[in-house]
Design a protein around this nucleic acid. Structure first.
Lengths: 243, 243
DNA sequence: ATAAAGTATTACGCTGCGTCAGAGTCAATA
DNA sequence: TATTGACTCTGACGCAGCGTAATACTTTAT
């Protein structure tokens, strides 16, 4: 049995953190001494290690709780989602860096005098940055919402989404900016807005990128809607958003 | 004169945000109506635009306040610092993505059974990830601390830092893992710990990377300590941290 | 027995707002 | 003109994940 102090030293987390984790029910000690001291055993220690691992990956504590508390939790899937989130976040930061570099290059002080010209460029950058950032937020919202639905409901929605992709797949030899494809894009956008979150053009565009980034999205879409369906969908979305 | 509602619609920020900005003194309306309604003029509007721009770049509101409230503020420098911060953050996220991918590839569920082998690899990843993340936090701390010091004090510290780099520069033809270089690395580490923040080996290593990333660090060091001094310092630090 | 070190609980602080709650204001309609 | 509906105001609480006291035991060592 180890005290908080020993646990703290061994794992590097603060005593306060251990107390907090106890309070929120993330990690209870094995037992309490007569005077109320927290006492941790090896099992608690191992659980803490897992917690710290997922914390490193920036999972919120609530998710970590779910993950470590149910041994049959699909960790692989959780990891994949987190990878997607982190990737979106990374892209967002990259956009911000570009934006900052652009600003610096053109002289911010100069810019602060409100010359109307060239500010368009900034807006463009900013919009781009916001878009990918937006997706990550909406994506989170989507994940939470879908978690609140029953498995059947989710399966149904997924099926309907897939139906749309299947339609994309069927016309994937046609013109992505043609009428059929464009109508489908709008259908997709409306569907997402209705069932998940408000899907603006910018967010839609980011989704398009996600479909072709080689992740499970791409694989799933291509598997069910035909090889190249994901890429075609992306091109159609691009055309739709640029118009 | 525009009301909060109009401002909100025009810029996309919420009314609550405008009220909040007023309260914290970031953006006061031009005047208040007899009944206490906030009324904004064009100047306020432009100021808000600037605020939003820096907010996009993830500057904390306190910094934004300093930036927009003093016209002679060195925005270029602020941008550069922010770029460094964002870059560190980006690297951190990249490490996290690698970590998550590695975990997924080796099967997390498998890992959760606590096989002792291979966890070392994870620790390595995690340490790497933490290191760059750490730097960004320490960097922030450093910036805040240095802001609290007088210009002379800062100049003195900078000079002393440069003296150390100059020493690196002087022996930059020797062996980076030799005794002289290693002693210098320790000197640097101790100096940072004493005057800025606790500089662990991991953080030190990240600093080494920063010295060679082609930013102002590199340029400054090489300019004052001789061409290649930054790169030599990095190699010496690497040897020091690996031992 | 007493000091030093460790621990517990409670509670406020931080960031940047979202989200009520309760109440007053403004413009237009019945 | 009275009412309605659309806005606005000022608090105040909530969130994430702890850090940082403050105050009061408990355990260990001397």
């Amino acid at each position: 049995m180890r005290t908080v102090h020993e646990m703290s030293k061994l794992t590097g987390v603060s005593i306060r953190t251990l107390q907090y984790y106890d309070k929120i029910g993330l990690l209870h000690p094995a037992e309490y001494s007569a005077s109320g001291y927290r006492l941790y055993d090896d099992a608690a220690m191992e659980k803490l290690q897992q917690i710290l691992l997922f914390r490193e990956l920036e999972f919120p504590l609530k998710d970590i709780k779910r993950i470590v508390d149910s041994p049959d939790f699909d960790k692989s899937k959780a990891l994949e989602q987190q990878i997607t989130l982190l990737t979106l976040k990374k892209e967002h930061i990259e956009n911000l860096i570009d934006l900052a570099r652009g600003l610096k290059a053109m002289g911010v002080n100069h810019l602060m005098d409100f010359e109307p010209f060239d500010t368009h460029k900034i807006d463009e950058y900013a919009a781009q940055a916001k878009a990918s950032w937006g997706t990550s937020k909406e994506y989170k919202e989507y994940m939470e919402k879908s978690h609140g639905r029953t498995a059947e409901e989710n399966a149904m929605l997924a099926q309907q989404m897939m139906d749309i992709f299947a339609e994309f797949g069927r016309i994937r030899q046609e013109d992505p900016s043609g009428r059929a494809a464009q109508a489908l894009v709008k259908k997709l956008q409306d569907f997402i807005t209705e069932h998940f979150y408000k899907c603006s053009d910018e967010i839609l565009y980011s989704l398009g990128i996600m479909y072709t980034d080689g992740s499970d999205f791409t694989t799933n879409i291509d598997k069910r809607a035909g090889e190249g369906a994901a890429a075609f969908t992306y091109r159609a979305i691009k055309a739709y958003c640029k118009k």
